[in-house]
Simulated assay, not measured.
Amino acid sequence: MKLIYAIIRNDNEDDVIQALMQEHFVVTRLSTTGGFLKKGNTTLMIAVEDSDVDRCIDVIKAQCGRRQEITVNMPYLSGSSIMNYTTMPMNVEIGGATIMVVPLERFEKY
């Protein structure tokens, strides 16, 4: 067995989970926060048989398309005033998923 960790944007969460459940995958959802944009993410944990890994990843990929978004990333300045700090909008690629597959030694469901 394998454990798939899929880190996705909150925007894609409902579509991904619904698609996975339609394919009879059991999904555990965790709320997480990304480091670069400081935006909310969802981390999905999915236990699958080895033969189902590629099918599960294909379902995730189909729901997590990449797209461009303009954002202003405010700096974190501890104890400092940011009144004189100028920010520039930046174009970032969002969407997609970060997927990790790790061996699962034991899986029990009661």
Rank of each mutant, 00 (worst) to 15 (best):
Y85N: 07
A6I: 04
N91P: 00
V101W: 01
E108Y: 14
V102F: 02
G65C: 09
S80T: 09
T42K: 06
E108G: 13
I8F: 01
V92S: 04
I57S: 00
K38R: 14
E108T: 12
K61F: 04
T87L: 06
M100P: 02
P75Y: 07
I94N: 00
I70C: 10
E108C: 11
R66H: 15
I82R: 12
I82P: 03
V48H: 05
P103Y: 02
M100C: 07
M90Q: 13
C56S: 06
N91G: 00
G96E: 05
M90R: 12
A19H: 01
E13W: 02
G79W: 04
K2W: 06
V92F: 03
L3C: 07
L77D: 08
I17Y: 01
Y5D: 04
T28G: 10
T71H: 12
E69G: 02
S81C: 11
A47P: 14
M74R: 12
T98L: 12
D58A: 14
E69W: 05
M1T: 12
M90K: 14
T86Q: 11
T28A: 10
N41H: 07
G95K: 02
I60Q: 00
P89I: 01
D15F: 08
T33K: 12
I70W: 12
I99F: 01
R9Q: 08
V59F: 02
I17M: 11
P103S: 10
V48D: 04
A6M: 06
S80K: 15
S78H: 15
R66W: 09
D50H: 08
A19M: 07
D50Q: 11
I7C: 07
L37I: 04
A19E: 10
P103W: 06
T98A: 05
V101K: 01
C64L: 03
E108I: 15
Y76E: 14
E49L: 13
L20G: 03
D15P: 01
C56E: 02
I8S: 01
T71M: 13
I57T: 05
Y5M: 09
S80E: 15
M1F: 07
Y76V: 11
A47E: 08
T43E: 12
G40N: 12
I17Q: 06
R106A: 11
D52N: 13
N41F: 01
S78Q: 13
I46C: 04
R106W: 10
D11N: 07
R66S: 15
V72P: 02
E49T: 11
I17G: 04
C64M: 04
G65N: 10
I7Q: 10
E49N: 14
L104W: 02
R29H: 05
K39Y: 05
E105Y: 10
I94K: 06
M83N: 15
A97W: 01
